[in-house]
Design a protein around this nucleic acid. Structure first.
Lengths: 242, 242
DNA sequence: CTTGACTCTGCCGTAACGTAAGGCATTACA
DNA sequence: TGTAATGCCTTACGTTACGGCAGAGTCAAG
């Protein structure tokens, strides 16, 4: 049985926070002395650790209580939602940084004193969006990857290769033919499903990379036949132009 | 002269917010009717736009007031600080997402109901950090780049090439020689100064890329002499091993 | 003159505590 | 055993940027 101070020193939460959690019913002490001192046992400490974990993930305290009280409340789903929420914030802040940077970069003189007019701000926003676009796709990719198990990742790797092979097998056709272009489209859709929103711009970057990157090119040519990498790149180039 | 409702509809801020801004002295109406109705003119609207810009960038209202009241308060510096703050938040949220994803990825069964113990949480954190590490360096890079003018970027590109050339010029020496290793160190320091915290791991990735990427290799060899790319990669490999 | 739209000034509530203030309880030391 | 030093309690206000009332006055139209 530990007093508030001991718990506080053990876990790093303030005494006031313990009072608060008691007050809102999130963490009741295991017992109280006749003088009204709060006493916590090991089970309470464990509960506190769980609370702190959720708190770190920026769950609101109310929700933490619900999660821990009713087993009906699905923690898996809650976690999923929370991740979505965090990702929203993350993107939002990213855009803010881009906007602020844009102002800093261009407005060194204008920043002097008075007002920006609205059109100017919109201009900043526009430019920030453009400079930020690619980055956001990458973010999405990383986050999606983080949530995958190694087996999932491996499976996806094979999937990609199948699509590449489908496309590479058509390299006797001209890259602008309808059939080839259809396959490019499917490739793009597959990327969007499995990795990130694959815009034409991104797809085009990927296409260039398949040739620019020695290892990629070697792999693709090995799996799909000599010259496949270049063929795929060309097909993508054409696809992205229209 | 516009009433609160008109201003509200024009700018999207609530009437209550206008009241609030009046109350805290952030945006006083240009005039009031004898009945006490607030009236705003175009100058006030402009001021409001500026306020909204700073608000979007998550400046606290108090600070916005200070910035706009006293020209002594340096907006350039304030913007810089704000960006730093946003970046801190950004990294923080990124790590949270990594942590949450890690729990989701591994804890599907464990997530059931009860407590995590502390060691388990630390384990999650550790793994999340590892999976997140490279990503963070990239973030830093993007953010630093965003703030640079095109001329700055260009200058830096030339700087990099100078360092590369310094290193490439030593390719008659063995890559493990002290002189070469010293140059590698300088290269790493230069990256950290100009782009991002260049850990050994990242440096090593860069080294591999100089050979893996066809375009990079060609450029390096062209500028620094035949075989320079491979030599630099080897020198970096050795440097990173100790 | 009434009606409906509009506006005003309070005041309470939010989230998660921080920071006192004022008053017992416990412990340490002389 | 007295007293000082901690430790603990409760109560309550402060923080941020408003949202949402209530109750009352104001304005333009029919």
């Amino acid at each position: 049985m530990k007093t508030v101070k001991e718990v506080s020193e053990l876990t790093g939460v303030s005494i006031r926070t313990l009072h608060h959690y008691d007050q809102i019913g999130l963490l009741k002490p295991s017992g109280v002395t006749e003088a009204g001192y709060r006493l916590y046992d090991d089970k309470a400490l464990e509960r506190l650790h769980t609370i702190l974990l959720f708190r770190e993930l920026e769950f609101p305290l109310k929700e933490i209580r619900q999660i821990m009280e009713s087993p009906a409340f699905d923690p898996t789903k809650a976690l999923e939602q929370q991740i979505e929420l965090l990702e929203k914030q993350y993107r939002h802040i990213g855009r803010l940084i881009a906007l602020a940077s844009e102002i800093q970069r261009r407005g060194k003189t204008a920043m002097g004193f008075e007002a920006f007019d609205k059109s100017e701000i919109e201009q900043y926003k526009q430019e920030a969006r453009e400079r930020w676009g690619n980055h956001e796709a990458y973010q999405e990719y990383v986050h999606r990857q983080l949530r995958k198990t190694p087996e999932q990742s491996e499976q996806e790797g094979r999937d990609v290769m199948i699509y590449m092979k489908n496309l590479g097998d058509l390299r006797h056709l001209p890259p602008e033919s309808a059939e080839v272009q259809q396959k490019v489209k499917e490739l793009q859709q597959m990327f969007t499903r499995n990795f990130y929103t694959c815009t034409n711009e991104i797809l085009s970057c990927l296409g260039e990379m398949y040739v620019d990157n020695t290892r990629f090119q070697r792999n693709i040519d090995q799996e799909c036949g000599e010259g496949a990498a270049e063929f795929i790149r060309d097909a993508i180039r054409i696809y992205c132009k229209q």
